[in-house]
Amino acid sequence: MKTAEAYEHEQGWDFEKAAMPYVDSLYNTAYRMTRNSEDAEDLVQETYLKAYKYYDKFEEGTNFKAWLFKIMKNTFINNYRKKKLTPHKIDFSEIEESYERVIQKNAPDLIRDPESEIFQDMMDADVKRALDSLPHDYKMVVLLADIEGFSYKEIAEILDCPVGTVMSRLYRGRKMLERTLLDYARKYGYIRGEAEPAKMRSRKDEVKGRKKKDEKGEETDVQEPEESEEEVLFAEAEDEEFEFEVEEQEEERFEVE
């Protein structure tokens, strides 16, 4: 019979073996979330200690990596709430409007040379900046889907939101990211296209613009500035449910009808 001590030791070893292979993935996302290595390290460490503490709550047979990411997301939100950082805000209708024109205009330039990178000279820092310019919720789904390769369903689990919300955020997040990259590319002359200045407006401008819209009684996508920052960033956002019917087929696959 094992002593209690030996059992605990075994459990710890088991956790270490299960969790350590994900450290790079978690750190990568933590780094993108916190934007600096020191905070990323602290976030990963806190995540591991919490995950270890609640390891007996982990349901065998479910996705361990997604479980770790979920703990990290929750830890980040809690820390974030303490710090009360200012969220990035962007006017979606603005993005939506001009994006189609931009992509249409630049498509031939962008795809002409299939071997080359799109914007050869664009710096990694610009891409990072474009990603960071997304509101947190949108940045998270783009990171989890396009960088970490999680399925919609896994992302929904990690972020505690419906799959429709994941899809809606992905749709908008990717669009905003592409739009920002195209703006940079045009600004630095990597692609041609008429000067249509980058319109990533400041928060102040946006609130102004929003008020104007409100006076006209038009609906707007912009979130209420009166909301607390946490709510704005981590809102469940029922209104942004994607309009497609999402049909679950098999276990991990989602179908857009």
Partner: peptide, 12 residues
């Protein structure tokens, strides 16, 4: 392009 430019950063 984004995926390539945001190459994963390994934990130190």
């Amino acid at each position: 392009f984004v995926k390539k430019r945001l190459a994963p950063i390994s934990a130190p």
